[in-house]
Amino acid sequence: MITFDFDYYRPDTIEEAINVYKKITGQEKKAIYYAGGTEIVSMSRVNQLSFDSVIDIKAIPECNVIETKDDKLIIGSAVCLTRICDFGGYPLLGAVCRRIAEHTARDMITLGGNILGKIQYKEAILPLLLTDSKVTVAGTAGKSEKPIDRIFNEKPLLNAGELLVNIIIDKKYINNPYSHSKKTKQEKIDYPLVTIASVKNDDEIRIGFSGLCVYPFRLDIIFGNIDNTNPESEINNILNRVPAPIVNDILGSAEYREFVTRNLLIDLFNYYGGMN
C-alpha cells in the first residue's frame, strides 16, 4: 500500500504529456512519467520514491509503436518487454529482454522504464548501446533525435520534463553476429551477477556489460587482438578498462563476479573465434 497521495494523468498525446508535466512542476510539484509502473509502485510502497503526480504514457501512440520503417527499427518507450520478445525484429534485444525478470513482469516492464529507471542493471540498454541507437526525446521545444548515450551515460541524462518517446535502431547492425549470456547467483529469475551482450561489427567486437558495475557500459575490442591460445591478456585488458569498481553485494562478491566475467569472456572469444 502506498501511503502518500498523488494525481494520475493519462495523456493521449506527447504534447499533452509535456504540457501537464510543465503545469505540475510549475506549481512547485514533482511529476514523473510512468509506464509499466513496476518499479515506481514497488519503490513507492516502501517510501523510496515520492512525487505528486504520475503521467502515464501508455496511451500515447508514439510511445507504443513497434515497427520497422525503412532501414530503422522503432520501438516506443512504453512497449513492454513481452512485445519486444514476441516481435522478434532484433534478435539480440529479444534475447536480452527475455532474460529480464519473468514473463508476467515482462508484460508490464517497458523498454523506457528499464533503461531510465532506478534499477542499476538496465540490461535492455545493452543492445542499444552496442548498435549506436538513437532515441526520440520530446520536450517543451518539440521532438529531437539524440544518440542513446546522450540520454544515458553512467546515469540517465534526460532533462526535467523531457520524455523518452522511442528508440531507433539502425537495421544495419541487426543481422550482425551477436552473443548474449546472463549469469546469476543461482536463479534463472534474478538480477544479473553479470550479463554480457555483444555484437561483432567488421573487425570490432562491441561488448556490453550489466551487473559488473553499478551501471551498464560498453567496451569495444579489436577482434584481431584475441589470441585464443592465450585469452588471458585480452581479458585482463578488458577488465582494466572497466570504468567503475566491480560490485560486491548479496548476489556475489567482487572476486566472484570477476571470475564469472572471465569465464564469460572466454566463452565469447571462443564463440567469435569459432566463426573464423
Binding site: 494520475y8 509502473g37 519473468e102 513482469a105
Partner: peptide
Amino acid sequence: CGNGDCNSCTVLLDGWPVKSCLMLAVE
C-alpha cells in the same frame, strides 16, 4: 509478496496476465 515477485495476485488485463499488486487501479 505485495512486491511483484510471486504472481499470486495475477489478473488478466485485456487477456494478458499482469501483477495487480504493481498496477494502479486507475491504470
